[in-house]
């Protein structure tokens, strides 16, 4: 039974990966990646990593992929790109060759280690292996520093993304007001703003 499930999930994961790389429309590539992530979550379940599988589905296939879909819709990648440029054919051939070489090398490196545990189904497990309770306890005891640094990293990334993607004064349309302008001129309120500014129009300016 486990073999059947493994091969189904592994084929799904590899097919999702191939689809992500080969589909021209970025929107379909994102959907293929969602399929890949779901199949990978099944593989995690087979390895008794219940919490990792749940986090994979909820955080990755849920939240992160929604972010991708929003950006694809915003940027409008629906036109599709040509897969190869002017120097494309030889570069593509070299890339595929490199991919095959990398796969062979990784397989030799992983399988050729001679670790005896790799030919087995793994060590005998306690009943709590991979449960959310165990994960939470480890995060608050053994991995507390990593946990706190991860929270700090998420905060920095969120602030950085907002600063990168905000509208800058002078780059956009004339009527745009950046956050910095509003902070610098606190006397401008909704009632007395000059016509054409974003405060007056009470909405984002039209492109």
């Amino acid at each position: 039974m486990a073999e059947v499930l493994f091969f189904l999930a592994a084929i799904g994961a590899v097919a999702g990966a191939v689809g992500t790389v080969s589909l021209r429309n970025p929107f379909y590539a994102v959907l293929a990646l969602v399929c890949h992530l779901l199949a990978l979550a099944a593989l995690f379940l087979l390895l008794y990593a219940q919490f990792v599988a749940a986090a994979q589905v909820v955080v990755y296939a849920g939240a992160v992929m929604v972010l991708y879909v929003f950006v694809v819709a915003y940027v409008g990648g629906g036109a599709g790109e040509p897969l190869t440029g002017s120097t494309g054919v030889s570069l593509r051939f070299a890339s595929i060759l490199f991919t095959l070489a990398l796969f062979a090398e990784l397989t030799i490196a992983l399988v050729g280690t001679g670790l005896t545990a790799l030919d087995t189904e793994g060590a005998s497990l306690e009943a709590t292996f991979g449960t959310p309770a165990e994960v939470g306890e480890l995060f608050l005891t053994k991995f507390l520093v990593a946990f706190e640094i991860a929270s700090l990293l998420l905060l920095i990334a969120a602030v950085g993304a907002v600063i990168l993607a905000r509208r800058r004064a002078g780059l956009g349309d004339e009527g745009e007001v950046s956050v910095g302008d509003v902070m610098r001129r606190p006397e401008v309120t909704a009632g007395q703003a000059e016509p054409g500014s974003m405060i007056e129009a009470a909405g984002p300016p039209q492109r």
Binding site: V14, A17, V21, L46, L102, T107, A117, L118, E121
Partner: peptide, 19 residues
């Protein structure tokens, strides 16, 4: 199910991503 299979699947997915 031998764990080698998981590692081979992992190597395959990594190579596809790098390509």
């Amino acid at each position: 199910m031998s764990l080698t299979w998981y590692l081979v699947a992992s190597a395959l997915i990594f190579s596809i991503g790098a390509g």
